[in-house]
Design a binder for these strands. Structure first.
Lengths: 158, 158
DNA sequence: GGTGTGGGTTCTGAAGCGGAACTCGGTGGG
DNA sequence: CCCACCGAGTTCCGCTTCAGAACCCACACC
């Protein structure tokens, strides 16, 4: 049996959200869906699978299960900050589908809300003050300097 | 039998690469793996599954199957430009795993090759010359004005 | 006290996945 | 000429996961 303890970050990420539904659940949550039945209706997912996926996402820190009323104890599932941090991945997948899987029936694009311009997504180096493509990416151990707090936040850009 | 013809870009993307192996196959291809047996050995994937995944990725335009020698006819699988265009999604998933699924054993980060600074990834609006977070994203039809549901509820900050 | 609602759990099949063994064309060595 | 070998799959079998529908249960409302 597979003793591969999925050691790379990508493998661990895919263990958590790399199935057919988790990403769609997260997208629904980003749109404001919170309750079990709303997820089920919105996604068309089988309810037992939804139970399992939500449980796994909660255990993985992507979502949180909070009571929203007491007496009939009812819960809602919200994205944690870690869950919201998956947005760039979602957006990348959506954009890729838009540009490379167009069926001609629904040309929908993601835009910057305030101005309506189609958004772009790229890699940005703070030091060089430049954007760059995938060929300039290198993986590197961070043992010497555990600088983990970079977080893509609203900034003024390149 | 789900007759849902997966109409949104995200659903179509996940139909193609939203299984347990496709993303890992694409990562291996980005690292230079090209041949059937090399994929099998590198990933530890069962060979019948690898056959199916490679076939689907070729049909989906993500990879191309080209002969690399004639007389014993042998083929290699390369990423197409569309396949390389999935890099931002891969990088987003890798970075998320690095930052939110750290097990303390392998702190590896992605850096800008030339200078070694950890890369950032964000949404960029050419018109406003600014980067922004997920709450400022809106989905909009590319042909007409924004009639597609605003797709965004109020959320706590990113 | 019956009905409705939200949030699940049990039951079935039907897919998909994993492992090993087998096939098939061609090549190279003895 | 014969046999081993290599790359690229395909078959066969067993196990795990998924999908669908039905069912359960605690409570609230009428």
């Amino acid at each position: 049996m597979g003793e591969r303890t999925e050691h790379t970050p990508l493998e661990r990420t895919l263990q958590l959200v790399g199935d057919r539904w988790s990403i769609l659940i997260i997208r629904a949550a980003l749109r404001g869906v919170r309750r079990f039945d709303d997820f089920a209706a919105d996604l068309g997912i089988a309810r037992p699978i939804l139970t399992k996926r939500l449980t796994r996402l909660v255990e993985g820190g992507v979502m949180a299960k909070d009571p929203y009323q007491e007496h009939p104890p009812r819960y809602e599932y919200r994205l944690t900050p870690a869950g919201v941090a998956l947005s760039p991945a979602l957006v990348a997948l959506i954009r890729w589908g838009e540009h490379h899987l167009a069926d001609g029936d629904s040309p929908i694009v993601l835009v910057h809300g305030p101005c309506g311009t189609e958004l772009e997504q790229g890699f940005w180096c703070r030091t060089c003050a430049t954007t760059f493509g995938p060929t300039a990416i290198r993986a590197q151990s961070a043992t010497t300097q555990p600088e983990h707090d970079s977080a893509q936040r609203d900034r003024t850009g390149p």
